[in-house]
C-alpha cells in the first residue's frame, strides 16, 4: 500500500510516541516502589535537617556564590582587558592564567588553597569563606575573562571610532559606549557562569568546616548518614538548587527580551 509523504510522517510520529511510552512503562514496572520511597522520598524523616538546610545551607550556598562571582567578575574583567592589551607580557600572563584555571578541576584549587596554603605558609589560615571565594573566584575568573573578551570584541570597531571622533578618551569610550553594548551580548553566557558557580559552591564540603559554614550539599550528605531516609536529604537539597537557578534563568531571559526590543 503506497503512502503519501504526510501519512508516512504521521506514522513515524506515532511510532516514536509508542516507543517513548513503552520505555517509561517498562521502567515504572521494574521499580520497587516501597524501597524507592524509603530511599528517595522519605520526607517524613527530614525533620532534623530543617530549618538548618535553609537558614544555614541555602544562606551559605548563596553567600559563597555571590562572593565568588563578585571576585571572579572583577578579576575576569581585568584579565579580559589584559588579554586585549597591546603590552605583550599582559597578554601572556592573562593567557597563562586563563588556560591554567580553566583546565584544572575546581576541587583541586579548593584543596590547594584550603590545605596547601596553611601548610606552605605556617601560621596563615584563611577563614573558609575566603578560601571558597579565592578558589572558585580564580576558576570562574578564567571563564568570565573569555566571555567578557568575546563580548567586548563583538562590539563593532566603528562604535569606538565614532566615540573617539567625538573627543572621548579611550577609557570613556570603553565605559560609556562599548561596555553597555557588550553587557547585553554577554548576559546569556554570564547567567550560565553564575549557575555553574552556584553548583560548584557545593565543593566547599571537602574543606570540612564548622556547622555554621555548611552549605546545602554538605547538610544533605550528613543527613544521609544520620537520618536513615536514604538519599532523600540530597533530593531535597537538589530541589533547593533549582529554587536558586531557575529564577536566575527567568530573570536573564527577561533582560534578554527587553534588550532585544531596543537593539534588534
Amino acid at each position: 500500500m503506497a503512502m503519501t509523504t504526510r501519512q508516512r510522517a504521521r506514522l513515524s510520529k506515532i511510532i516514536q510516541i509508542v516507543i517513548f511510552l513503552g520505555v517509561i512503562v517498562a521502567v515504572v514496572l521494574q521499580v520497587d516502589w516501597r524501597i524507592l520511597g524509603d530511599n528517595f522520598f522519605a520526607f517524613d524523616k527530614l525533620g532534623p535537617i530543617f530549618p538548618e538546610l535553609i537558614t544555614v545551607g541555602l544562606k551559605n550556598t548563596l553567600y559563597y556564590t555571590v562572593i565568588s562571582f563578585a571576585f571572579g567578575l572583577a578579576l575576569g574583567l581585568l584579565l579580559a582587558l589584559m588579554k586585549m592589551a597591546s603590552f605583550a607580557p599582559y597578554r601572556w600572563f592573562a593567557t597563562g592564567f586563563i588556560e591554567f584555571f580553566r583546565g584544572v578541576p575546581a576541587i583541586l584549587v579548593l584543596i590547594a588553597f584550603g590545605y596547601g596554603v596553611p601548610t606552605a605558609f605556617p601560621g596563615t589560615s584563611w577563614p573558609q569563606p575566603v578560601v571558597v571565594m579565592v578558589s572558585l573566584g580564580l576558576v570562574s575568573a578564567a571563564y568570565i575573562a573569555e566571555t567578557l573578551r568575546a563580548g567586548l570584541q563583538a562590539v563593532p570597531k566603528g562604535q569606538i571610532e565614532a566615540a573617539r571622533s567625538l573627543g572621548m578618551p579611550a577609557w570613556r569610550a570603553m565605559v560609556t559606549i562599548v561596555i553597555p553594548q557588550a553587557f547585553k551580548i554577554v548576559l546569556p553566557p554570564m547567567t550560565n557562569e553564575i549557575i555553574l558557580l552556584t553548583k560548584d559552591s557545593s565543593l566547599a564540603f571537602i574543606l570540612g568546616a564548622s556547622m555554621a559554614q555548611y552549605e546545602m550539599t554538605k547538610i544533605g550528605r550528613d543527613g544521609i548518614t544520620s537520618l536513615g531516609a536514604g538519599i532523600t536529604p540530597l533530593i531535597v537539597a537538589g530541589a533547593f538548587y533549582l529554587v536558586i537557578t531557575i529564577p536566575l534563568s527567568l530573570i536573564a531571559r527577561k533582560f534578554e527580551s527587553r534588550s532585544a526590543r531596543t537593539k534588534r
Binding site: 565614532a162 566615540a163 571622533s165 573627543g167 553594548q181
Partner: peptide, 17 residues
C-alpha cells in the same frame, strides 16, 4: 582636537543602545 572635528561615517555608527 577631535572635539572640534566632526566625523560622519559611511555606516553611520550611531550608538544603538
Amino acid at each position: 582636537m577631535r572635539q572640534k572635528v566632526g566625523m560622519v561615517f559611511q555606516q553611520f555608527n550611531l550608538f544603538p543602545h
